[in-house]
Design a protein around this nucleic acid. Sequence first.
RNA 1: GGGCGGUUAGCUCAGUUGGUUAGAGCGCUGCGUUGACAUCGCAGAGGUCAGAGGUUCAAAUCCUCUACCGCCCACCA
Length: 889
Amino acid sequence: MTQENKTQEEMPKAYEPASVEAKWYKHWLEKEYFKPQIDPDKKPFVIIMPPPNVTGELHVGHALTATLEDIMIRWHRMMGEPTLWLPGVDHSGIAAQVVVERKLAKEGLDRHELGREKFLERMWQWAESCRGTIGKQHQRLGVSCDWSRETFTLDKGPSKAVRTFFYNLYKKGLIYRGERIINWCPRCSTALSDLEVNHQDLTGNLYYVRYHLADDKNECITVATTRPETILGDTAVAVNPEDDRFKALIGKKVVLPIIKRQIEIVADEAVDTVFGTGAVKITPAHDPVDFDVAQRQDLPLINILNKDATMNENAGKYKGMERFECRKAILKDLEEDGLLVKTEPYAHAVGHCQRCHTIIEPIASHQWFVKMQPLAEPAIEAVTGGKIKIIPQRFNKVYLNWMENIRDWCISRQLWWGHRIPVWYCNKCGELTVSVEDATTCQSCGSTDIQQDPDVLDTWFSSGLWPHSTLGWPDDTEDLRYFYPTSVMETAYDILFFWVARMIMMGIENTGEIPFRTVYLHGLIRDEKGEKMSKTRGNVLDPLDFLEKYGTDALRFALISGTSPGNDSKLTTTKFEAGRNFANKLWNATRFVLRSAADYKGDMLIKQENLMLEDRWILSRLNATITSASRLLKDYQFGEAQRQVHDFLWGEYCDWYIELAKTRLNSASVESSPLPVLINVLEKSLRLLHPFMPFVTEELWQNIKASLPEDEHFADSIMISAYPKADKKATDSEAEKAIDALIDIVRAIRNARAEHNVEASRKIDAQIYAAGLNSFISPYAGAIQTLAKAKVVFIKDKKEQVIENALVLVLKDSEIVIPMASMVDIDAEKQRLQKEIDAMQAEVKRLEKTLSNEAFVSKAPKAVVDKEKGRLLSARDNLGRLEEHLKNL
RNA sequence: GGGCGGUUAGCUCAGUUGGUUAGAGCGCUGCGUUGACAUCGCAGAGGUCAGAGGUUCAAAUCCUCUACCGCCCACCA
């Protein structure tokens, strides 16, 4: 250390995240470290970020996504792989439109008054402002993604991808327009896919209604329904053809109550003979099962609802009524006519709009659909064949179950915000034109009198293309060739079907390759009570609040700690505190190391011949931690990896190594100084921790760098430095054994002091006999004196032990004798010894039993048997010594 | 109706090829102002790993069943 070291002098006593974070994020951006270094000879590591919705600000779920992905990205980047993390934002069709519509409603407006064009202007304003906010929030989280590639789903590239995909599927016959039962949200006034409907069990009623036969007013058939208003749309009554009760009635006509329309009794297998009355009213326009029956039986469809779920002209006198008002009115009328046989309470699942929670209505409607089965087949094969790995594995089953039972996907939405369907209808010949470019003429007749389909596509139709559309598809771009297929798709398990499954299908369809090799699914973050966060519950946590209070690194630490793949986790303030405290601990440890380094005159290279036992120990422990953390990162065990690095730094480096190093700082010559190891281990540990806590590690690492002489081995930033690699040569079992024994000794003496209420300032005496380890540990008499406040004498021979009136501590590899003189009362000590003897006897017994078990000795691996044998020997030995000491007391 | 997950210390949770005395954070008890850190240090208490059965030399870990909690999927009107 020849230069002046001002840095550490300026380090304040506590870590202050705010200034550090802004400084380094800016630096990283300026140096363009987030951009991938393309190298054709290296396989890149690629994550396409799940694009947040433009529905507001980021929440803690986004923060978790950002953290997990940033950990992977930073780790791989430090491993020297060309690393791309591509950020983006989703226009999020219906969800965003609902948000803006609500804002309009507050102004007393609705989108129809505004008109499509003006409304879309408002949407764009909103989306742009969200995009800005989301970007800023992401930066505060420290995400190291390539902002130069940031993409919005409505950008030119993704839009072209959407149209191209639509066009291709249409040409292949996999996209078609047809009349089917779809889920209609009266509030949003649009069709929804099956996935966008949440089923909720509600207790309603099952109403039994009597329909009289047309030709015999005395005879009737009774049907059961939960939605009596749909009677107005009935076009048949169905019974099971095998049902003897109704066989005679098949083909006869009944008269619908109230509107008096005559409908036929038909036979259809879909009818369950044991449910309800065994006779079902058929409302083909408002029930998927009835729709199918109608197709088979060639029944007419009568739609009774307007778009807003009021009754239409087919409802006769109920026209204009709101649907549930109508239900009440019909029930009243039925009752008056004596046709309501009975009413019983009935719990059944009712569909609600995922976005606005309005009860959805099944309605027969002309919509665009994707035929899914042909797309699902290769997507199933990709997972069963192991080309795509899902973590945790249990989601394979969930994924496959959904894929194998997939149904056609309704993709048209009667919204304004989104990708407009690339279809034009000809007003002259009635034919349609599907085109990637905007069409100007009809493909069939050449007429220019054409108009584009007013609807837009399901937002997931574009999200599903995300991994390849962001990289340039359908164009053959360099990015697409180099970065696709991507490496990991990291997202929450609740969008497995919405998004992940569709990306797999679409990716394979469009590129012939899987979109990503690994799917990592994280769990949901819940509040302190374990409740799912939602705006209506009002328990949504804003990550920015925590950022400001505890710092980004603490937030990231909190989000990851105690989590495992696919499992939900609770976010509690104690986790934030733990993260903040850890950052602060590192801060102070570094402060100490650098302060010590300022007085040190040698260089920082570790010289093998100068190493003391504790140096070898901490190097060995560091290496073990690197090995383990690397393995855990590779296995996506981020919570556990973080914990192990944390435990090493706090529990081994700070608690023991620094404390041991202090004992030789003052007296040490340059050769025997702990500084090289102190600083090297810290520097390497910071790199090990960097993916988890990027800011504090960068700041401390830079401080270390500044305190050292110019060194070309140090990169400009920790984030582009090499991730530590395990080195088998660093493993040192001799040093680990000796230092473990030393730690045992210190702990035992401290424990004895505490147990016997020795004053803190008082030094006690201790004789230590460390058998085979004596030569290793005896040099540490001074260290023990400092750490355990005991004057230590090492004895070579047990015979030298003076055990009269003394406390004897029997450890694994050593024995400590502490003269009782002023410390202890004998009875208490006898009791303590007896307790230990009991425990040791139990241990001996257990081991004897294990080892006398021939099956164990013959079947268990030799290493395990030997280990047990060794333990028995040492337990017997300890027991003997304990018993002897008790006798001598 | 199918499927999945959870049940481990007072609380929140780790514990991934079955192998020492089951761990962490927080909380609790006692002690502590020696210049890294009170956002700290030292010591301690606290668990028949939901219950029952099974496989194994060996089970928190694998299998079966049961109980409770939670989630997902599903067109019985």
